Computed example of a mutant assay.
Amino acid sequence: MSFFRVKALRRIAAQSYRMSELAAELASDRPYLTLVVDDLEQRGLVQRTQHPTDRRCKIVSATPAGQAAAARANAILGTPPPALLALPAADLATLDRITSELATLAHED
């Protein structure tokens, strides 16, 4: 499964979304997101249901299998690789400082 599909699944597992809200959250265009959600639905990881008050839109939510897959993805993505864990504390502190600065610069653009 592509990283974008995993990213979408993790978001959907955290909360249900309207397709338009999910597209905005993921900074994706709607046609591509529809293809992604179609694929996740075919895999049995998400389901679409009618919005309770707006017949024009669908709500996307995770199935139990989708919740489990998202939890597995979160565990994998939350576990640093062994090479990173082997770094000395001073190197980890330097790496943390550099990545924080890069994140700050990225948000300024």
Rank of each mutant, 00 (worst) to 15 (best):
P52L: 13
T79H: 02
R11S: 09
C57H: 14
S20R: 11
I98H: 03
L105S: 12
P80H: 00
P52D: 02
A106T: 07
E101H: 05
L33G: 11
E21T: 10
T79G: 04
V60C: 05
Q15K: 13
T99I: 06
R11G: 06
R55T: 11
L35R: 09
Q67L: 15
E108W: 12
Q42S: 13
A23N: 06
S100D: 02
D54G: 04
A68T: 13
M19E: 04
Q50S: 15
R72C: 06
A24N: 05
L87W: 01
A86G: 03
L87A: 03
A93D: 04
D39C: 06
A69W: 03
A65I: 05
T34R: 11
T53Y: 15
A13N: 10
R30C: 04
P64F: 01
Q47T: 14
L92N: 00
L84Q: 02
T79S: 05
P82Q: 04
T104W: 12
F3K: 15
I59Q: 10
Q67D: 10
P52F: 09
P82T: 04
R11T: 09
A86F: 00
D91V: 02
G66N: 03
V60D: 04
G44E: 05
S61D: 08
G44R: 11
T49M: 07
Y17L: 01
S61R: 15
Y17C: 05
T49D: 11
Q15A: 15
T63E: 00
P81I: 01
A8Q: 12
P81Y: 00
H51T: 10
C57N: 14
L87M: 01
L33H: 10
L40K: 01
A89Y: 03
K7P: 12
H107G: 08
